[in-house]
């Protein structure tokens, strides 16, 4: 790692003030320290924010508030989350390893960089790491890469499982900056690469994620997080699907479908949701929804399989979530 100064912040405004040029907030460190070891991020200063009072998990009149510094496992194991938002627990437990989940925070998970191998190797071209250097993946080994929303500048995917579930749960992000706070829908937090793939999200310099709120109801009875990967655990998604259904008899009253491993941000499957809403929960309808979800998908040399795996995964997630097998 490059040498850097380390300061420990004890209150939020102080942390924001302490953040200077080429500085980073340090929370769980599971991504940042790795990036620093690889020479991808070389900060002059780290501001340790783990002592900030942003570790609550508490009821609000409309749902649940989660402090940004809660660890992944604290959230995944929390009784209120397990009861009302089991989809989120499932997504957390599908990510990384128990040890990493004990370190990684919710805010840090949102800030997690892509796992694209070209991003991770400073000897290779990557527009996300060095704007203008080219996209190594576009003509390269792009097996893990996007099929939705990519640009010629970047075809990387967001690796977070948590974010897929939070998008499905229509969470809200609370952000604090030097000049005040702002709130935005979780779905608007991450962005597509476009011509500025170096920006993963809409966070401005000096801003700090302070908490998330999760609304109710989140129809917890019919949910599933399906993650398909190259080994059974401790691997990033080839594709993943968060499915949450509200069933009324045999009909779909409400549905949320979000896919991971396919885009630069959590990919909400609105066309599929629209199709399913009000229709009988049948495998045939799930298939049709998956077909609609895949419109506009574009694959590259090594990820053609995602055009088949993704709709299959949507169907399977819906089957498991609904309990409908025919």
């Amino acid at each position: 790692m490059n040498p850097f100064t380390y300061v420990r912040a004890t209150e939020t405004s102080g942390a924001i003030r302490a953040l200077g040029r080429d500085s980073h907030f340090l929370a769980g460190g599971t991504n940042l320290i790795d990036l620093m070891k690889m020479g991808i991020v070389t900060p002059e200063k780290l501001v340790d924010i783990t002592h900030l009072p942003l570790k609550h998990i508490s009821r609000t009149p409309t749902g649940l508030s989660i402090g940004a510094l809660c660890t992944n496992s604290e959230v995944a194991d929390h009784p209120l989350v397990l009861k009302h938002y089991p989809l989120l627990s499932m997504a957390f437990n599908a990510g990384a390893s128990p040890q990493l989940r004990n370190m990684a925070t919710v805010g840090g998970n949102m800030m997690q960089r892509t796992r694209c191998p070209y991003f991770f190797d400073t000897a290779l071209p990557c527009n996300k790491r060095v704007p203008g250097s080219g996209c190594g993946a576009l003509q390269g080994y792009n097996r893990m890469h996007a099929i939705f929303g990519a640009s010629d500048q970047c075809i990387a995917v967001n690796p977070s499982d948590m974010s897929i579930a939070l998008t499905a749960l229509e969470a809200t992000v609370h952000i604090q900056g030097a000049r005040g706070g702002r709130i935005l829908p979780f779905a608007d937090f991450h962005r597509l690469p476009g011509d500025t793939p170096e920006k993963d999200n809409v966070l401005e310099p000096g801003e700090l994620i302070t908490s998330l709120t999760l609304p109710l109801p989140a129809f917890p009875d019919h949910v599933h997080y399906l993650k398909i990967r190259d080994r059974t655990s401790y691997a990033f998604a080839l594709v993943s699907v968060a499915a949450a259904l509200q069933l009324d008899g045999g009909n779909v009253r409400a549905v949320r479908l979000v896919m991971g491993g396919v885009a630069h941000k959590p990919w909400r499957l609105e066309a599929a949701e629209d199709f399913l809403r009000g229709k009988p929960a049948t495998v045939e309808n799930f298939r049709q929804a998956a077909y609609l979800a895949m419109q506009g998908a574009k694959a590259y040399a090594y990820n053609q399989f995602k055009l088949t795996l993704a709709p299959n995964a949507i169907v399977q997630a819906l089957k498991t979530a609904s309990g409908v097998t025919a």
């Binding site: 769980g28 599971t30 320290i33 790795d34 780290l46 783990t50 990493l100 370190m103």
Partner: peptide, 10 residues
Amino acid sequence: INSCLSLAVS
């Protein structure tokens, strides 16, 4: 936790 990703000073 994984001690390789934790700064000692943290």
